[in-house]
């Protein structure tokens, strides 16, 4: 006789397998399809309710061309993946605010963060974020360093990061910063340190 808890376990795992397969097929479908999705203009999701936690956000400032670390208290879910998404949404909320220190295009959002491989984080951003992003080496690298450093500082164990746009690989963010490879979290950590030094 097979105990009942095994049946439940199997059903849950089979459902997970099915969900992952569907997700992978959708990702692949997106990579193959060439039709341009309309830009996503959803408002930034409000932070999930729950107990608040202290985190460090690395915020870009265009006027001085620097990153600055800010301590913030935000409500974070307990699931690692959702925590990652909420962290980045809190950061985007700063950039989308009227008094933004580093304006990002209206409607910029995180479609999802996937912590797939041990040490690999995939950040999937929407088209609005990339299509309207300001062009320039420093402008683009401030954004990328801010996102990755915030993620790897608050979510332990991230060694490399891939940034996708609408589920697809993109050559550059806005003509400069390379999105075709994997970012080395250690390298970005050093870059973040350089960007925190005043010029």
């Amino acid at each position: 006789m097979i105990p009942r808890h095994l049946y439940i376990g199997i059903s849950v795992l089979l459902a997970a397998v099915l969900a992952m397969t569907i997700y992978a097929l959708r990702m692949r479908g997106r990579a193959v399809a060439t039709s341009v999705s309309p830009s996503d203009t959803r408002p930034v999701a409000p932070p999930a309710a729950g107990p608040t936690e202290q985190v460090t956000l690395f915020v870009a400032y265009d006027d001085i061309g620097m990153l600055q670390a800010h301590a913030a208290r935000i409500p974070l879910p307990s699931v690692r993946q959702q925590r990652a998404e909420e962290l980045l949404r809190s950061l985007l909320a700063i950039y989308l605010d009227k008094s933004s220190p580093h304006p990002l295009p209206p409607g910029s959002d995180v479609r999802g963060v996937y912590l797939v491989d041990p040490g690999l984080a995939v950040i999937d951003m929407n088209a609005a974020f990339a299509d309207g992003h300001r062009s320039g080496i420093l402008s683009e690298e401030l954004t990328v360093a801010s996102l990755i450093q915030t993620l790897s500082t608050n979510i332990p164990g991230i060694a490399k990061v891939k940034i996708l746009v609408e589920g697809k690989e993109r050559q550059t963010l806005a003509g400069h910063v390379d999105l075709s490879g994997f970012f080395d979290a250690a390298g970005i950590n050093q870059l973040a340190a350089q960007l925190q030094n005043s010029p």
């Binding site: 095994l6 199997i10 397998v17 992978a24 990702m27 797939v116 491989d117």
Partner: peptide
């Protein structure tokens, strides 16, 4: 039988994970 099921589940997960990586990063 529990051990056999465990092996089946583990290989199922591994297979799904591999398929996920291959398909997502094809």
């Amino acid at each position: 039988s529990a051990r056999a099921l465990g092996i089946i589940i583990a290989s199922g997960i591994l297979f799904a994970f591999a398929a996920f990586l291959v398909l997502a990063a094809a």
